[in-house]
Computed example of a mutant assay.
Amino acid sequence: MKCPECGHDQKHKYGMTCSCGYQFTLDPKQDKISDGKFLALVRNASSNDTYYFTKNQLVAAYCRREVKGRMGGVVVVAIIGLVMSCVAWFGIRPEVDVVWIFLLAAGLLILFGGTWAVLQWRPNQARMESAIDKWLAEGKPIPRLLLHPSLQEPPPEWDEPDIYDYGVESILIVEHDLLVDLLVKNGFHASQRCLIVSETGYPGYIASRITELLHERPDLPIYLLHDSTRKGERMIERIDQQLRLPHHREFIDLGLFLEDVKRIKRLRPMLSARDDYAIALDYIGYGMLVGGLSQALDEQLTLAAVLDAQAAGGYEASSFG
């Protein structure tokens, strides 16, 4: 275990306290992750302490790392299977057909069956969730991690008359309260000149302002953003009932749908099962999320359409974060 404080390589048999006094929280043998790797994932999720992020985004950073590591296994298995198959194919002789045919079959089984099995594998998300909970239970902070909505009241640095000085050009309604915090605390509302509120009407001081704005400007575009779940896909059915927007019935749905996730390969590391394409929106790293969402707002495209266009342009899955 490498100490995050002094860099000393602490052997497990010498206990969970480094010679410098640092107390290790995670046991690599039990938790399957070390303190150093955990903190590296935190830096990844926050883009080196640049962004606020959610627990889902920290879990997603872990999944991406695990999938990237597993890809090396795919290459090894494929090479072994290919070599065995080639040797068998060119070595077949009438007098030893059975042996070589068996070797050929074994090689093909490793090549295709082994590769398929590795690709079917999914990261153990519960392992990372447990590590996060253990870290927090020890009283250790995770800078910029958002655990609960905290914008029920305007932040102290916001003067009420100045909240809207950036000029509102659109309204963004998100499915979950915490997604409001994620976008607002990272300044997305100001850079995109939009008011952000959840479908529950959180935060109330923003929701009331939306009602006023729509009376003044009934043509103001309203965008929806939701998870790739059955509940998320039905978000548009709940808006009028929950927010009671005045005389405004047209919404532009930017959210993810199950069919989108099924199609977009970049989202697959976040899936808990091969046949389940439900995914929370904040499993997408903030950098990728805000980049895709900005383009979606500018061009009035769905987030999925933007991700498709990025994939077609050669963007790599490593840009997730």
Rank of each mutant, 00 (worst) to 15 (best):
M288W: 11
S191R: 15
L297H: 08
L147I: 11
C63I: 00
R234N: 15
F24L: 07
F257K: 15
I252A: 02
A78S: 15
H226V: 06
Q10N: 10
L147N: 10
P141F: 04
L293F: 02
I80W: 03
D260T: 09
V306G: 06
Y315M: 13
A317D: 10
V168R: 01
R234C: 03
G232V: 02
D162L: 09
T200A: 12
D240M: 01
W135L: 06
L41I: 04
I101W: 09
V174E: 04
E175L: 01
D227E: 03
P161A: 01
Y62M: 01
Y14N: 12
L254D: 05
L108N: 13
I142P: 05
A105H: 08
D275E: 13
A131G: 04
K55F: 01
V197H: 00
V83N: 06
Q10A: 03
G314P: 05
L307N: 07
A305H: 12
I222A: 08
G21F: 05
Q30A: 08
L245W: 05
P156H: 05
L41H: 02
I80H: 11
K32Q: 11
E138T: 11
G204W: 13
F53V: 05
R274G: 02
C3K: 07
A280N: 12
K37D: 12
S47L: 12
C20T: 09
T25D: 02
I80C: 13
L179Q: 06
A312V: 15
A78N: 09
L82E: 12
K2Y: 13
G201N: 07
D133K: 10
I173F: 00
S318C: 07
P218T: 09
Y62N: 03
I222L: 14
L220M: 15
N48F: 08
L172I: 10
L172K: 02
E237R: 07
H226F: 07
L179H: 11
R209T: 14
K231D: 09
S34R: 02
